[in-house]
């Protein structure tokens, strides 16, 4: 199994945020995790990338048990987490932000090639290369965050609400790029408020509610589910 999350329980102090979540991502897939605010989507991603620890169960990636692995080592295995709220390094330039995305890599020529690839997907970043991250617009910051996440050449990328705060045109654009990244061989675990868009590009979906997975299946099936339609798709 590519990514396998099994029965994870995560707490913030006394708050039991994830209550026995299990799911998996196959190689090459786009899988989406949808759910209301506070359901535990971001917590799930943080647990996979090592920022949080589960008290039970396990997280396995490409045969490695990463449940207790520090975040900085998990990246080296090929998981890249683009966190909620972009988390751009504001005092660093666009170029420096991208270089930090490639922190685990050493070959300067290959890093440069990856940077050029990011610029092909996000031409705006090339124009802004020496601008400070903190001075970018929200949409530009999202592009930079996604580009930075790609700089480690991940096998799996965890995207937390990449469309948040973007104009409809940019949302279209970012989803197009997500599909493009996927078609180049990167598996994607996508967390989205915009369930309709997410379901339209994903192959499978999990619906999460107050720390539990309440529905899972083929993205198309999930999109047809009456409860999902009612709760998340606003139909």
């Amino acid at each position: 199994m590519f990514l396998e999350v099994e029965n994870i329980n995560v707490y913030y102090g006394a708050i039991h945020a994830l209550q026995g979540i299990s799911f998996h991502v196959n190689e090459g897939e786009i899988v989406t995790l949808i759910g209301a605010n506070g359901a535990g989507k971001s917590t799930t991603l943080r647990t996979i990338s090592g920022l949080l620890r589960s008290r039970t169960g396990s997280v396995k990636f490409k045969g490695h048990d990463i449940t207790y692995m520090p975040a900085e080592q998990i990246v080296r295995l090929g998981i890249s987490h683009v966190p909620e709220g972009r988390k751009i390094f504001a005092p660093l330039t666009v170029r420096e932000n991208l270089l930090m995305g490639a922190f685990t890599r050493t070959d300067p020529a290959e890093i440069e090639a990856s940077m050029q690839r990011v610029f092909t997907s996000f031409p705006r970043m090339r124009e802004r290369i020496n601008q400070l991250g903190g001075t970018l617009s929200g949409g530009e910051q999202q592009m930079l965050a996604t580009g930075r996440g790609l700089m480690s050449r991940p096998g799996l990328i965890l995207l937390d609400e990449p469309s948040m705060g973007l104009s409809p045109i940019l949302v279209e654009e970012i989803f197009r790029i997500i599909q493009e990244i996927n078609s180049q061989g990167t598996s994607i675990l996508l967390v989205e408020q915009n369930a309709l868009m997410a379901l339209s590009i994903a192959s499978r979906a999990y619906v999460i509610e107050t720390g539990r997975i309440v529905l899972e299946g083929d993205a198309r099936e999930v999109a047809e589910n009456p409860q999902v339609k009612n709760a998340y798709l606003g139909v």
Binding site: L51, E72, K87
Partner: peptide, 20 residues
């Protein structure tokens, strides 16, 4: 650069693979 990134945001620095 990693020092500046770490000074700004430690969790995100770790996500980059920086050993804080």
């Amino acid at each position: 650069i990693a020092m500046r990134a770490t000074a700004f945001d430690k969790p995100t620095a770790r996500l980059m693979g920086i050993n804080v």
